[in-house]
């Protein structure tokens, strides 16, 4: 555990350095409005990242969660529109259940046929995307048709202040949801036998089996929970941007995996923490946000994300390999 803490300290130090650098180049970075918008941008990616973290600790990888999120949010919102239903709690439960079902599919294939998670989740992503577009259509549900209560939920602010330019900016209350999910995830990972089983399984599946870990249950737990978080995050996203787009989140898997790796999780499994992941997400979101502020082309942003994922993976791989010697 000590090594994890030091890993987190390193990531936090990187974050602070990057923040100072960005602040030097662009003093507007430290503006309240920018910081609030940064926090807002963390919420959905952060919740997804916590799911991916869980899977990466278990030694797997998931590229299907953006498709799961999109499916969960689109199916839920379209159903709400069709039924003329408005509300918050039930839709979030529905979106989460859709996520769990798709996660169960991943877990079933991976566990039953002992297949590589990357291939399985790639396939799942393609199937889910295709089915949603094929069966439900491609039209975007816009603000005029979006359920009002869902919008109202996503609109809530924690505090609002008046920025220098006179506009009122608020800190979205959804950060509380994010923090809540993170706290629960931390407790699960750190203080339950289920969470420790995930670490054990990710460290050495064969030894975990010998030690009496129910490996089947562990795999289902991991992929179902990640599916749940993806479904939940999907609908949260819709309620925050007042729109339901079935083509949402395309290409997001790379950003999220980059953030998790940046947060110190090992691509070999067995290592990673909630705090590290949150710092990793914040760093990635901040860098992307700053590139936008600096008017860097989106194509170049892809380059930066690519560089981050390779550099962060190389560093963690180097760290993990060094320990083996």
């Amino acid at each position: 555990m000590r090594s994890l803490q030091s890993t987190e300290a390193v990531i936090a130090a990187v974050l602070v350095v990057v923040m100072l650098l960005i602040g030097l180049i662009n003093p507007a970075f430290w503006g309240v409005d920018n910081l609030f918008s940064l926090a807002r941008a963390n919420v959905v990616i952060g919740i997804m990242a916590l799911g991916v973290l869980l899977i990466m600790i278990s030694g797997g990888i998931d590229v299907s969660f953006p498709a799961i999120s999109a499916a969960a949010l689109y199916i839920t919102v379209r159903t709400m529109v069709a039924l003329d239903y408005d509300g918050v709690v039930l839709p979030f439960i529905a979106a989460s259940v859709i996520g769990v079902l798709l996660g169960t599919f991943n877990a079933f294939i991976i566990e039953r046929f002992r297949m590589i998670p990357l291939i399985v989740t790639l396939g799942t992503a393609s199937i889910v995307r295709g089915l949603v577009l094929g069966l439900l259509g491609t039209s975007i549900v816009n603000i005029n048709k979006m359920p009002k209560e869902l919008i109202a939920f996503g609109k809530q602010d924690l505090v609002s202040v008046t920025a220098q330019n006179g506009a009122t900016v608020g800190l979205t209350a959804m950060v509380l949801v994010y923090i809540g999910v993170a706290v629960v995830m931390h407790i699960v990972l750190r203080h339950t036998m289920m969470g420790r089983s995930v670490y054990a399984y990710g460290g050495d599946p064969e030894s975990a089996r010998r030690a009496g870990v129910n490996t089947r249950r562990t795999i289902y737990f991991v992929y179902c929970t990640a599916g749940l978080l993806a479904g939940f995050a999907g609908l949260l996203h819709a309620s925050m941007i007042w729109q339901a787009n079935p083509r949402d989140f395309i290409g997001l898997e790379l950003d999220v995996i980059a953030a998790v790796v940046l947060g110190g999780a090992s691509i070999f499994g067995g290592r990673g923490s909630v705090l590290g992941t949150m710092i990793g997400v914040f760093t990635l979101v901040m860098i992307k946000n700053s590139l936008i502020l600096m008017k860097v082309d989106t194509t170049w942003q892809r380059v930066v994300v690519g560089v981050i994922i390779i550099a962060a993976t190389a560093i963690t791989a180097w760290r993990d390999r060094k320990k083996l010697v």
Binding site: M1, R2, M193, R196, S197, Y199, A200, G202, G203, D204, E206, S207, A208, R210, A211, G212, V213, S266, G269, G270, R271, K323, L324
Partner: peptide
């Protein structure tokens, strides 16, 4: 191969089996 978990601490390696 000892069947230990390299990514976990000594204390946890020792307790895990008993707890399970």
């Amino acid at each position: 191969d000892f069947s230990l978990f390299g990514n976990l601490t000594v204390a946890e390696n020792l307790a895990l089996n008993t707890y399970l």
